[in-house]
C-alpha cells in the first residue's frame, strides 16, 4: 500500500469545488478563503491543530454547518439555502462521525437500511441485501440483529461506515473517525477505510493518523487558524514541509 503510484489527476472531473469559502462562528473567523478541488476518486487527508477549522471545513460540504461567503459545488449542485439542493447533496455525500452517532433504538441492520428505504425509497428487501453485503465487507455480519449499545467502539464505527455506504454515496467524509476509539480498535477501522480507498471511493478524511495518510492519501492538507497553510502529496509533505507552522505541527505529532 505504501508504494502507491502518484496518479495524474488533472484530467479527472472535480466532485467537490470550494471557492473562496468563508465562515464565522459569531466574531470568530473559523474558515478564511478556502479554495479546494476534490477530484473523483481522490483521497485527501486533512490535519492540523485542534480548532484549526478542519472539521468545520468538511461539515460545510454537506451543510451541517452553513458557510457565509463563497461557493461550494458538490457533484454539479451548488449549495444554497434551498432544502431540495441540500437534500440532493446529502444523498451523494456520506459522513462518518467521531462519536459514531448510530441510532441506539434501532438494530444494526435497521441502522443501515433506514435511509435507503425512506430517503431513496428502496424496497426493504433490496436495502437489506445491500446492507448485509456491506456488513460482510466491514466484517461484522453476525452483529446485524444486535443494538449499537451491545457493540464495541471499533465495531460501532465500522457499522457507521457501512451505514454511510448503504446510501451508495459518491463522496465519503470522515470526521476524526478513530479519535474516540480505544487504541486496540483503531486498526480495524483504518483497515476498512484503506480497503474502501482501494476500491476508488472519493474520501476526505480529517485525522491525525499519519500512517493512514502515507498509505492512502493522494494529498495531505495542513490547516491552521482557518486557512489551508500547505498541501502536498504525502511523501513530500512529510519529508519536506515548507511552512514553519507545518514543521512545528509535524514535530509535535511525530516525535514524542
Amino acid at each position: 500500500m505504501a508504494a502507491k503510484a502518484v496518479r495524474d489527476l488533472s484530467n479527472i472531473p472535480s466532485v467537490i469545488e470550494m471557492r473562496a469559502v468563508n465562515k464565522w462562528f459569531g466574531q470568530f473567523h473559523v474558515l478564511s478563503d478556502i479554495n479546494l478541488d476534490v477530484k473523483e476518486g481522490e483521497k485527501i487527508v486533512i490535519c492540523g491543530p485542534s480548532g484549526s477549522g478542519k472539521s468545520t471545513l468538511i461539515r460545510c460540504i454537506n451543510r451541517l454547518e452553513e458557510h457565509q461567503a463563497g461557493d461550494i459545488v458538490v457533484d454539479g449542485v451548488t449549495l444554497s439555502n434551498d432544502v431540495k439542493n441540500i437534500e440532493a447533496i446529502r444523498r451523494e455525500v456520506g459522513m462518518v462521525f467521531q462519536s459514531f452517532n448510530l441510532f441506539p433504538h434501532l438494530t444494526i441492520l435497521e441502522n443501515l437500511t433506514l435511509a435507503p428505504i425512506w430517503v431513496k425509497k428502496m424496497p426493504k428487501k433490496d436495502a437489506e441485501e445491500i446492507a448485509m453485503g456491506l456488513l460482510n465487507r466491514v466484517r461484522i455480519p453476525e452483529q446485524a440483529l444486535k443494538y449499537p449499545g451491545q457493540l464495541s467502539g471499533g465495531q460501532q464505527q465500522r457499522v457507521a461506515i457501512a451505514r454511510a455506504l448503504c446510501m451508495q454515496p459518491k463522496v465519503m467524509l470522515f470526521d476524526e473517525p478513530t479519535s474516540a476509539l480505544d487504541p486496540e480498535m483503531v486498526k480495524e477501522v483504518l483497515d476498512v477505510m484503506i480497503e474502501l480507498a482501494g476500491e476508488g471511493m472519493t474520501m476526505l478524511v480529517v485525522t491525525h493518523e499519519m500512517g493512514f495518510a502515507r498509505a492512502v492519501a493522494d494529498r495531505v492538507i495542513f490547516m491552521d487558524f482557518g486557512e489551508i497553510v500547505e498541501q502536498n502529496e504525502p511523501e513530500e509533505f512529510f519529508a519536506n514541509p515548507r511552512n514553519e507552522r507545518t514543521k512545528l505541527f509535524l514535530s509535535q505529532i511525530l516525535h514524542h
Binding site: R90, N101, V119, A164, M167
Partner: peptide, 27 residues
C-alpha cells in the same frame, strides 16, 4: 438527545418529518 443524532440523520439525507418521526421522537 445528543446533537450527533440530529446530525447523523441530516447527513443521511432525511428530511425534517422523517428525521423527527424515525430518529428523534422514538428516542
Amino acid at each position: 438527545l445528543p446533537k450527533g443524532q440530529y446530525e447523523a440523520a441530516e447527513a443521511l439525507g432525511f428530511n425534517y418529518v422523517q428525521k423527527t418521526a424515525l430518529i428523534i421522537l422514538p428516542q
